[in-house]
Amino acid sequence: MSTGAQRRIDVDEIGNVTIVKFVDKKILDETNIQIIGNQLFSLVDEERRPKIVLDFTNVEYLSSAALGKLITMDKKVRAAKAKLRLCCIRPDIYEVFAITKLNKLFSIVDTQEAAIQSF
């Protein structure tokens, strides 16, 4: 990945919890999804963040390719013995998780506060 690659996630820290917000409203485009995946994975692979919250407040659309990246992220987090929470998922998007039964795989909570407290 070039150093000039546009940042597709915003990363903040609250205590030892990393809060990740997606910049895009639509996580659909394959190239974007690839970049988002790489930026998420580096939080675990390179930065060794122990507790990560993915905040979906901005996200209005998300495709199965994006779900694939989230699944890989979850595997990496578990392999690193870190923890992952998903929050602020609007009902349309939650339906996508429910249809694919990924709501069973991920820990999904309503708010960012609830996610932080759940660790």
């Binding site: 495709s63 199965s64 779900l67 694939g68 990246k69 699944i71 890989t72 979850d74 595997k75 996508v96 249809i99 694919t100 039964k101 990924l102 069973k104 795989l105």
Partner: peptide, 12 residues
Amino acid sequence: NLERPCGRGIML
């Protein structure tokens, strides 16, 4: 198959 990162498009 739940943890496989692909194969959900048709289902959706």
